[in-house]
Design a protein around this nucleic acid. Structure first.
Lengths: 337, 337
DNA sequence: ACTAGACGTGCACGCGATTGCAAATTATAC
DNA sequence: GTATAATTTGCAATCGCGTGCACGTCTAGT
C-alpha cells in the first residue's frame, strides 16, 4: 500500500515553521508542561496553519496510555444495549477517552478474541457488556495493566470492576405488586440465555412467591427478544390453568408477550393479565405497551464505570463490586398502580 | 500516572526467548513476510508463552495505517442507527479493521470535533452516519490521506464515497400505493431536522402526488422520533379535512403517529387511514404496528462502505456516489397490499 | 557585583514496531 | 566439487512523539 499523498504533518514541520525546537511543540500540546506563553502562541498558530494534530498513536506509545477504551458487546442493535452504549460513549468522550467498539457473537472464543483486539491496541481498559471472558485472558488483561469492567455479568474474579443491579430484590417487588393486584397464578417468562441477571430475576421471583405461598410457572425459550416473548406467551396462555400475572425477564420479551396475548388470545391487559418487564427500553413507554417495568440506571452504570476508569489504578487489585438499584416504573400493565 | 505493574511484553523479549532477532519476530507476525517455517514456529511459541501481542499503535506508526475506522454518529440508541452500526462494525471486523465510535450531538462543530479525533488517532477512514462536516475539515481529512464515507447525507463534495437511497423514487411508489388503496387526501409527516433524505422523501412524495392531481398536506415537528410522530398526528388528525393516507418520513415517526391515531383518535388502520413509514426498524414488524415501510438495505450499505475502504485509494479523487434501492415491505397498514 | 533560584529551551534518547539492504545460509544446477 | 540462485536473517534506520538532563537567561536577594 503506497502512502497515498503527502501523509500527515509532523511536529517537526510545525517546529520548523514556528522557529522552535520539536520539544517545544510537544510541550505546547502537553498541559502543565514548562513553556512560555509566547512560544506556545507561536506554536499553536503554526500548528493551526499547517493543520497539525498530535498523533495519539505515538503519544500512546510514549505515555504507555492510549486513551482507548474497548467496548465489548453483542447485539448492539438491541434497545437496552444501544442505550447503554450511547451513555458509555458519551461519558467516555467527556472524560477524554475514546471508545473502540467490538462486536461479539455467541460463539465460544468470541469475547476472548475481542479482548485480544483490545490488548493489541493497548486499550487502557475494556468494558464488557455481554458475554464472559475466559479466566486466563482476564488474567492476561490485568497483568498487562489493562483494566476491566463487567456490566450485569456477575463474576467472582478479583480485579475487574463489577457493576450489577439488585435483580433478586427487584423481582421480589414484582411479586408484591402482583399480590396487591389480586393475582394468584404467577408465571416467569424468560429465555434460555442463562445470563446471571436473568437467573437472579428468576430466583428472586420464585423465592418471593414462595414466601407468599405461591407457585411460579417458568417458561423459557430461545434467545432473549421479541420473538421469544411470543413463543413463551403461546406456551403459557394455552395452558388449562392460564396465569394471571407474568414477570418477563426483559422488556423485549414483554413486548412480544403482550402482543401475542392481545392479538392472538384477545386477552386484555391489565384486566385479565398483569405484566411486568425489565430494562425500561423506550418502547415500553409507547402507548401500545405502557409497560410497568424496572428502569436500568444506564446513566449511573456508565458513570460508575467511567469514574472508576478515570481514577488511575489505585492498587494491585482495585476491583470491586457495585450494586445499583433498579426503580420500578409504574405504567398501565399492572392493576392498581 | 505510575506504570502499574510489569507493563506489556515487547517483541524484544520474545526475540530473546526464541533466540532470534527482533526483526524475525516482526516478520513472524507479518503475513507474507520472508521467514522460514521453523523460526516462525519458534517465535509463535515464545510469543504464546509470554503472552505477547503485536502493538498496533507502533505498527500503525510505521505502516502509516492504523487499521482504525472512525464511526461518527448521533443518536446511537435509535433503532435504525444501531442496526446500521451493528452491520458496519461486524463487516469492518471481518475485514480486519476496528471501529472507533464517536458520538455527536446537534451542536454546530460536533462533527468537526469528531473528525479531529479521528485524525488524531490516524484513522484510515471515517464513516459519517449523521451530521455533516465543514468543507474545510473534509479537505483536511482528504489531504491527510483519510478516506471519508457519507451515508444518507447527500453532498456534492468530491473525494468521499457517498451512499444514498432512491428516496425520491421510493416516495413516488408510496403515492401509487395510496392511490390504489383509494386514498385522496394525502399527508406527509416529518420532522424539522431537514436532512437530505427527509427532504428527498418529501419532495418525491409531493411531486408524485401532483402528477396524480393530488395535493399533499405537510406537517413537521421537532426532532425525528416517536414523540414527534404523536405531535404531528395530533395536528393532522384534528383538521377539518382529515387525511386518509399519511407517509411518515421515518418508522419511528410512524409508530408515534399510529399510536396517537388509534389510542387518542380511535382511528382504525388501515380501514380509515393508510400509513407508510421508512427504515423498516424491528418494531415495524411487531404485531402492534405491522407497518408497511421501506427497508433500509443496511447490509448492502455496510458492504458498499467496507469494500470501498478495503480497496486502497485507487486515485487522487476516488470518491463516487452510490445509489441503493429501498424495497417496499408490504404489511397491514395500507389497504390492498 | 556576585550568587542563588526560577524558568524556558534544546539535545538526545527511548517507546515498539516495520523494512531496505547486505550478509549468511541453504538449495539447485552443472 | 564449485558456481549461482533463492531464501533467510540480522543490522540499522525510521515512524512521531515525550521527557530527563544540562545549559542559558532573567530576576531578585544580600
Amino acid at each position: 500500500m503506497p502512502l497515498s499523498h503527502k501523509v500527515f504533518v509532523s511536529a517537526a514541520e510545525v517546529a520548523r515553521k514556528a522557529g522552535v525546537s520539536r520539544s517545544a511543540v510537544s510541550r505546547a500540546f502537553t498541559p502543565g508542561a514548562s513553556i512560555s506563553g509566547e512560544t506556545r502562541q507561536r506554536v499553536m498558530q503554526a500548528a493551526e496553519e499547517l493543520g497539525y494534530h498530535v498523533n495519539h498513536l505515538a503519544r500512546g506509545l510514549m505515555r504507555n496510555e492510549s486513551g482507548i477504551v474497548c467496548l465489548i458487546v453483542s447485539d448492539v442493535a438491541t434497545p437496552y444495549r444501544s442505550a447503554l452504549l450511547r451513555e458509555l460513549t458519551q461519558q467516555l468522550q467527556t472524560a477524554g477517552k475514546v471508545a473502540m467498539l467490538v462486536n461479539t457473537d455467541r460463539s465460544d472464543g468470541s469475547v476472548d478474541r475481542a479482548l485480544s483486539q483490545a490488548i493489541r491496541y493497548r486499550a487502557d481498559a475494556s468494558i464488557i457488556l455481554s458475554g464472559l471472558p475466559d479466566k486466563s485472558i482476564t488474567q492476561l488483561c490485568l497483568r498487562n495493566g489493562q483494566r476491566l469492567v463487567l456490566i450485569n455479568r456477575d463474576d467472582d474474579q478479583p480485579g475487574p470492576l463489577r457493576i450489577n443491579l439488585d435483580d433478586h430484590e427487584a423481582a421480589g417487588r414484582v411479586v408484591t405488586a402482583f399480590v396487591r393486584a389480586g393475582c394468584t397464578r404467577l408465571a416467569f417468562a424468560s429465555s434460555e440465555a442463562g445470563t446471571p441477571s436473568l437467573m437472579a430475576r428468576e430466583a428472586g421471583f420464585i423465592a418471593a412467591a414462595k414466601s407468599h405461598g405461591l407457585d411460579v410457572i417458568v417458561e423459557r425459550y430461545g434467545w432473549t427478544g421479541y420473538e421469544a416473548g411470543k413463543v413463551v406467551a403461546h406456551r403459557l396462555l394455552t395452558r388449562t390453568q392460564r396465569p394471571d400475572a407474568v414477570f418477563c425477564a426483559t422488556d423485549l420479551l414483554a413486548c412480544g408477550f403482550m402482543d401475542a396475548a392481545r392479538h392472538q388470545f384477545s386477552i386484555s391487559i391489565p384486566e385479565q393479565l398483569c405484566v411486568v418487564g425489565f430494562d425500561d427500553i423506550e418502547q415500553s413507554s409507547w402507548s401500545s405497551y405502557q409497560l410497568t417495568t424496572f428502569a436500568q440506571p444506564v446513566a449511573a452504570i456508565a458513570q460508575e464505570a467511567v469514574t472508576w476508569l478515570a481514577n488511575g489504578s489505585s492498587g494491585e487489585l482495585d476491583g470491586r463490586s457495585v450494586k445499583l438499584h433498579a426503580d420500578l416504573i409504574w405504567r398501565d400493565s399492572v392493576r392498581g398502580g
